[in-house]
């Protein structure tokens, strides 16, 4: 149970970081933390205590095995996270070139 609570706390830290920080690089890091928390949660769902790898071999009876599907899904999700992070960092660099600052409160040309 404690792992799930820690995972949830990690999610909240990431969300806090996205919502409260003013530096855009810190916001990107916050997004990363949110993604990792969700990925960790997904892996935890598949975890079984004292489970083994789900490989089917001849004359073996597997009684307790780890669910392999969440691991496959998390791999996909990590790749998606990489793409999003790369894109946002690229945008952040261009933003720094245009505005000369990383402070989100000073990057405010759009309003209304």
């Amino acid at each position: 149970m404690i792992e799930y609570i820690l995972c949830f706390i990690l999610f909240c830290i990431g969300l806090y970081c996205v919502l409260r920080k003013r530096n855009i690089i810190k916001i990107v890091i916050g997004l990363g933390i949110v993604e990792y928390a969700v990925n960790l949660f997904f892996v935890l769902i598949g975890f079984r205590m004292h489970g083994r790898a789900p490989i089917l071999a001849k004359d073996q009876t597997i009684s307790n095995m780890v669910d392999p599907l969440p691991q496959a899904l998390v791999l996909t999700s990590i790749v998606i996270g990489l793409a999003v992070t790369a894109l946002i960092v690229a945008i952040a660099i261009r933003l720094y070139e245009k505005y000369g600052t990383f402070d989100i409160t000073k990057i405010r040309r759009l309003r209304g």
């Binding site: 945008i91 245009k98 990057i107 405010r108 040309r109």
Partner: peptide, 10 residues
């Protein structure tokens, strides 16, 4: 890739 577009996209 103008300033406003980058800001909106971010």
């Amino acid at each position: 890739t103008e300033a406003e577009e980058l800001e909106a996209s971010f």
